[in-house]
Design a binder for these strands. Structure first.
Lengths: 334, 334
DNA sequence: AAAGCCGATGTAAAGGATTACATTACTCGA
DNA sequence: TCGAGTAATGTAATCCTTTACATCGGCTTT
């Protein structure tokens, strides 16, 4: 029932607990025969150091918390994978938290930092949890907190992201280059800075071609359903091109377009965002903005680890490249 | 820099550490004025109990580990959500681990149990991590380990799952009822018991209709790409109905069917499995077997919590109902 | 052969919270 | 008024590891 402790191991091996500890964490400081004897006992008892005791003593949990607003979105899964790999290399484990866009759950997870359950936090949402405010104002850029994907200049947290304005611009330029003039946009919620940035980029591109006032802007919430709901309006507005701020919304929109008796891309071209793994298997293959998902996670961890190591980190904003991937959901007009 | 401890709080409030501790965990055992005074100090210092110390003392981490073979699969996201809700109700937090189907990563996560970082483990794969063997043979059904989705009778772990054989049977009966006689199946890897069960069910249905030897069986790995790779062969074999053991594979297959110049469901009907959130937005809407994803997670947690509470748990296998959801990827033959 | 060094190991003090048990100061009943 | 009972709080042991410092032979050096 009760698991063996270092004391029992020490007793059985006829050494002190210090030696057992050394065998496990600094093997080279123990004489060969002693080490082998201890290891044998460790093995036979199935001894595993109690992590709580170790953390308490070393003041290091060797864990990084990554919170995502929606774990069911495969986009975040790729970011998490990148983070996990980088974390492993740096000697950290990753704990994943799904906040479901709920501020109170975000706060709950952020509390793991205050209670020292984790050494650092990477949050992929746009909102700095309330209970981190004191920490940020006290420690500033030395606080072990990094923001990924999103970027809110006002919260003063180092972050890793793409140039969302440029990406929004690229998407619109693509539709315009295909001859589309009546273009719809389904954004994310207004509170999301990345949504604002993408929209700003899109509007800038539209303006450049004198199409600013023909842009039909609808507010979604990144979910397929939310996009589908806007499609009847968009069709009534006569759009021939549509830019959705997530692939899920693009899929929802395409589904609704068909439901309305139209066809994508023949009647309406659709551009998505994220390049989910399924984007290329969707019907039609999704034209979309690819984000370097794995890299975002990886860089976020590296930034965080630098902070944890106490390097004064001059780098606090990292912008990674995006890419327009053209498949078959967009087509020349006419 | 260094965070406040209970000792500092006690000193500032002019009480003992015991009182501070009681204020935080048994408020009713402390006199009102004292409690308020302590709370004030706690607030002003931003004190948060050190979780490592608490865990060490109470021998309870208040955490449950849920490992999934592939975090980018939205199916598991739903299971995790269900688990999180049930865990929260029972006073536990959920830690999510992505094993990527890698046994060594599975072992790594399982080690969190041995080192008492978590109180219990729910694993959604099919393989009992090696380093849990001793635990299982020592504690048997009292070990805080539960298996979800999959079910391997031989490993002796309580589990929560659907009746995969019956589900496989349902899927095939549906295709047969639509007039299909040349039916293909894309399974999961053979090591996966759920794949074996689904296949057994499918074959049973085929046999019942004298179609056993016309079944074309291909082995996939649940990924869209793996299914797409088999489609040319299936077409060459002249199948008109296809049963894929995951929605991702169904989507991959449908995409490849189109690539090959055929149309689903006109030329080939496809049945998926899982009913992912995107299944209804796919083109065509996916006919699929819906699993009660949230319930699986929830029941798994409840089972685990029972074990942790020390109730002798007579229940060790829970079978939940599945459902055939008919959309537009299947159609009457001819 | 004395002094100094070194490698191997032991001793014991943290680390921060919880809680059984002890103490204190009242209140109440007889 | 005394003893019992009770509510509020304090004391100190405990959870298990890690690690600075102490100790102890034995070896080298002069």
């Amino acid at each position: 029932m009760s698991m063996p402790t270092i004391i029992q191991v020490a007793a059985m091996a006829g050494v002190s607990t210090a030696t057992v500890s050394r065998v496990l964490s600094h093997p080279d400081r123990v004489a060969e025969p002693t080490r082998l004897r201890v290891l044998e006992v460790v093995e036979s008892l199935g001894y595993k150091p109690n992590v709580a005791a170790r953390t308490l003593r070393t003041l290091r949990a060797a864990k990084i918390l990554v919170t995502v607003p929606d774990i069911s979105n495969p986009f975040f899964a790729s970011v998490i994978r990148g983070a996990e790999e980088a974390a492993r290399d740096a000697g950290y484990a990753v704990v994943v938290g799904d906040t479901r866009h709920d501020p109170s759950i975000e706060d709950q997870y952020a509390a793991m930092l205050s209670s020292r359950e984790v050494d650092g936090l990477i949050f992929l949402g746009h909102r700095l949890p309330d209970n981190l405010r004191p920490l940020m104002s006290k420690q500033g850029a030395h606080a072990p907190v990094v923001n990924g994907c999103e970027y809110s200049p006002d919260i003063g947290v180092p972050s890793v992201h793409i140039d969302n304005a440029a990406a929004g611009c690229d998407a619109l330029e693509h539709l315009i280059a295909l001859g589309h003039r009546d273009i719809g946009v389904i954004t994310g919620p207004h509170v999301s800075p990345i949504s604002r940035d993408r929209l700003a980029g899109a509007m800038q591109a539209a303006e450049r071609h004198g199409l600013a006032d023909r842009l039909r802007i609808h507010v979604g919430d990144y979910s397929a359903q939310s996009a589908a709901d806007h499609v009847p309006d968009l069709i009534a507005q006569g759009v021939t091109g549509l830019f959705c701020f997530s692939d899920e919304m693009a899929m929802g929109a395409i589904s609704a377009i068909r439901q309305a008796g139209r066809i994508c891309p023949d009647d309406i071209s659709v551009v998505g965002f994220d390049d989910l793994p399924l984007a290329r298997f969707f019907q039609p293959g999704l034209t979309t903005i690819a984000q370097p998902k794995g890299h975002i996670g990886q860089q976020a961890v590296e930034l965080l680890v630098d902070i944890l190591r106490g390097d004064d980190s001059p780098v606090s904003q990292i912008t990674l490249p995006h890419e327009l991937v053209i498949r078959s959901s967009t087509k020349r007009l006419g």
